[in-house]
Simulated assay, not measured.
Amino acid sequence: MKKKLLLCTMLISVFAFAQQKSGAKQFWENLQKQCGKSFEGQVTEGADNDTFRNKKLVMHVRNCGETTIRIPFFVADDKSRTWVLTYKNERIQLKHDHRHEDGSEDKVTQYGGTTTNSGSSTLQFFPADQQTYDTIPNAAANVWWITLDETSFTYNLRRIGSERLFTVKFDLTKTLPTPAAPWGWKD
């Protein structure tokens, strides 16, 4: 009887563990909760001459699907950048979609990387992929990461082996009016 009870307890534990969501899935679902919302950010790490400083920085979680989330990132009137996150097989891919005002792709676009593990509900790392190396050879040592909690979203870049570090932090407690579409998009 004790063996059967122990076996049943073990099976329930295994089943409960199998039903838990991965860190990537939890992160994805938490980010989807922000869909349609816009937030202002500020540079918290980066060079003093960084072109992003002293400009209005806005992210808009504009397009959320089951496997793709698109987040335009505006730097003042520059609407050329969109972070594209794709969820597949318990991993998340980050790509940077850069456009010109006419909507055409910039020659430096679609770089980024894919998580190597499921990460956590609040943190995902994206080491540079082969496409990044092919597009921007100096960026082969790039690692991007995004943090997400109830009050903030941070986008981060570190170039391993260098002093290059960039972080922009967005306040999720204060929404902004919905901005116009980024370059290359239609409202």
Results as ranks from 00 to 15, higher is better:
169 K>A: 12
153 F>Q: 01
84 V>E: 14
93 Q>P: 02
129 D>I: 05
35 C>T: 06
119 G>R: 03
175 T>P: 00
77 D>V: 13
70 R>G: 03
30 N>I: 04
149 D>N: 06
92 I>A: 07
182 P>R: 12
39 F>I: 06
8 C>P: 02
28 W>M: 06
83 W>V: 10
41 G>K: 14
13 S>H: 06
112 G>T: 10
61 V>I: 14
119 G>K: 04
149 D>S: 02
143 V>K: 15
79 K>L: 09
92 I>L: 14
31 L>T: 06
82 T>F: 01
81 R>M: 14
40 E>C: 04
103 G>Q: 11
28 W>Y: 07
77 D>C: 12
16 A>G: 08
110 Q>L: 14
84 V>A: 01
40 E>A: 12
132 T>S: 07
87 Y>N: 03
27 F>H: 01
50 D>R: 15
71 I>F: 07
157 L>R: 15
49 N>R: 06
12 I>G: 07
156 N>T: 08
20 Q>T: 14
65 G>H: 05
122 T>Q: 05
2 K>R: 00
54 N>W: 11
182 P>E: 03
27 F>K: 02
171 D>V: 02
39 F>S: 05
29 E>N: 15
38 S>G: 04
159 R>D: 06
159 R>N: 14
151 T>L: 02
17 F>A: 08
149 D>Y: 00
161 G>H: 01
102 D>M: 09
155 Y>S: 13
102 D>K: 11
107 K>Y: 11
169 K>S: 11
143 V>F: 01
5 L>I: 06
124 Q>M: 09
165 L>H: 11
14 V>H: 04
172 L>Q: 05
172 L>D: 03
104 S>R: 12
167 T>M: 14
84 V>W: 00
51 T>A: 10
154 T>A: 13
129 D>P: 03
107 K>L: 13
83 W>Q: 13
61 V>H: 00
63 N>F: 13
124 Q>W: 11
3 K>W: 03
11 L>P: 05
117 N>A: 15
164 R>G: 08
60 H>N: 08
165 L>Y: 01
85 L>I: 05
36 G>F: 02
79 K>E: 13
185 W>Y: 12
14 V>S: 09
105 E>K: 15
77 D>T: 07
53 R>W: 08
4 K>I: 09
152 S>A: 13
168 V>M: 15
68 T>A: 15
181 A>W: 01
8 C>W: 01
166 F>T: 10
39 F>Y: 14
103 G>H: 12
50 D>I: 00
127 P>G: 12
185 W>D: 02
44 T>Q: 13
17 F>L: 08
109 T>V: 03
145 W>A: 08
96 H>S: 10
175 T>L: 05
90 E>W: 00
80 S>K: 15
169 K>E: 13
54 N>R: 09
25 K>Y: 04
166 F>S: 13
40 E>I: 08
137 P>Q: 07
110 Q>N: 14
78 D>P: 06
19 Q>R: 10
90 E>V: 02
